[in-house]
């Protein structure tokens, strides 16, 4: 199995605070890898390090065979990494259509027309400003924007945050669809149970270090661990 992304021994700091203590993980090509953990475990920092937004001081990141450890963010994205940040970060003053014009045109199956077919709601609201959208629509827009890069690897940071259960299911179905399209996925979630239903592999992060790595199925079977993960999460749903 080839890996889309591998990180070895990442140490990341915010100023003097040491946040990641040697995080290593791997995202296998064509699979969904879930990165779970409680609030403040270092999940978002891990993703920011992988994207070059907060560069790791130590460690090595390889994405599709290239050492990207010191690459600037835009180059990592242009290498085929779509990133859906925490809190969606859509451009609030720009229309939906304008939001979709921001990503680099890398060439590939995803075009704005195809995005509108996948997300008809965005097509209906294409003249609306980002700030006028509901949370679910903003999440769709954030995913759509990342897809327009035609990524080979999609990194999602808490896509279910603050969304109604019905919308969360929709988001997770789209993530599964991306896998079916051959896109590798790294999914950070607090919603452990639901993530494990769609993930192939899983990592658990605690206090800036990996405390579990294995298949999602094994982790899902470990009821006590899953319950401990869910401890900090207010709501838990299943796909069915």
């Amino acid at each position: 199995m080839t890996s889309a992304l591998s990180a070895e021994g990442l140490h990341t700091y915010y100023g003097k605070s040491h946040i990641l203590h040697g995080v290593s993980l791997e995202v296998a090509e064509g699979r969904i890898t879930a990165l779970l953990g409680r609030n403040g475990a270092g999940k978002t920092t891990t993703l920011r390090s992988l994207m070059g937004l907060t560069q790791a001081r130590e460690g090595k990141i390889t994405i599709f065979g290239e050492d990207t450890t010191r690459w600037p963010t835009f180059r990592i994205a242009a290498h085929g990494v779509g990133y859906v940040p925490e809190g969606r970060r859509i451009f609030a003053n720009l229309s939906v259509e304008e939001n979709l014009k921001v990503p680099l045109e890398r060439g590939g199956p995803w075009t704005i027309e195809r995005i509108y077919k996948l997300f008809p709601r965005l097509a209906e609201r294409k003249q609306n400003r980002g700030r006028q959208l509901s949370g679910g629509e903003q999440e769709m827009l954030s995913i759509a924007r990342a897809l327009l890069l035609n990524p080979r690897l999609l990194i999602l940071d808490e896509p279910s945050q603050g969304l109604a259960p019905l919308i969360v299911r929709e988001v997770f179905r789209i993530v599964q669809q991306m896998k079916a399209e051959g896109i590798s996925v790294l999914l950070v979630e607090q919603n452990a149970r639901m993530s494990l239903e769609i993930a192939d592999d899983a990592y658990v992060l605690d206090d800036g270090a990996v405390v579990y790595s294995g298949t999602a199925r094994e982790l899902a079977a470990d009821d006590a661990r899953v319950r401990a993960l869910a401890g900090a999460s207010a709501e838990e749903w299943t796909l069915t």
Binding site: M51, L53, P72, T73, F74, R75, A77, A78, Y83, P85, R89, F91, A92, N93, L94, E98, N99, K101, V102, P103, L104, E105, R106, R145, A146, L149
Partner: peptide, 25 residues
């Protein structure tokens, strides 16, 4: 134009523009 839209997006959130593959420099 895409350049113009990216400039406007950049005034709102330059980091996210970079994460979408745009050379912000």
């Amino acid at each position: 134009t895409r350049l113009g839209v990216r400039i406007r997006a950049g005034t709102l959130d330059l980091e996210t523009v970079a994460a979408l593959g745009i050379n912000v420099g």
